[in-house]
């Protein structure tokens, strides 16, 4: 058991949690930020991707204790004053989602890509989204959405 202090979506939070608490569990069950999804037990699907200190990671494969003191951004933290982030707008506009289960992770990964590469090519987008699995869309519209967002950010 230990104290976990994080800044999540700009808000300081502090909670006691057992040492085996995953960051994803901390976000979903302690902070009720259920936008971060859990799709697998093997660190492969990417539904749980969030940003920690500006870099994307799989929150199901990091201990809350291990990122103690960090700044975390989840899908809930992307909007500003009720307005969607350009990446979210682009996913909506270009049908980059169907069931939406993979979407929070896809969007968080894609936002990190654009932080590092402002004008990615199709191949670079596909390579970057290697760790995000989508069962529905066939990826075409996701890639199109990321390209569209790149023109807006």
């Amino acid at each position: 058991m230990g104290k976990i202090s994080l800044e999540v979506n700009g808000r300081k939070v502090e909670k006691e949690a057992p040492d085996n608490t995953l960051l994803s569990t901390f976000l979903r069950e302690y902070l009720q930020l259920t936008g971060t999804h859990i799709g697998c037990d093997t660190s492969q699907c990417g539904a749980c991707v969030v940003h920690v200190d500006g870099n994307s990671l799989k929150s199901c494969t990091a201990l809350a204790a291990d990122v103690n003191g960090s700044k975390v951004t989840t899908i809930e933290g992307l909007e500003t004053n009720g307005k969607m982030h350009p990446m979210q707008e682009a996913f909506k506009k270009l049908h980059g989602l169907q069931c939406g289960f993979c979407t929070p992770g896809m969007v968080m990964s894609a936002v990190d890509l654009l932080q590092k590469n402002k004008k990615p090519s199709d191949t670079e987008i596909r390579d970057w989204l290697e760790g995000n699995i989508c069962r529905c869309t066939g990826y075409q519209n996701i890639v199109a959405a990321v390209k569209e967002a790149a023109t807006k950010i």
Binding site: G46, S56, L57, K58, D112, W128, E130, G131, N132
Partner: peptide, 9 residues
């Protein structure tokens, strides 16, 4: 190796 999130950790 793996994907960007694996490489970040």
């Amino acid at each position: 190796i793996g994907d960007p999130q694996v490489r970040n950790r």
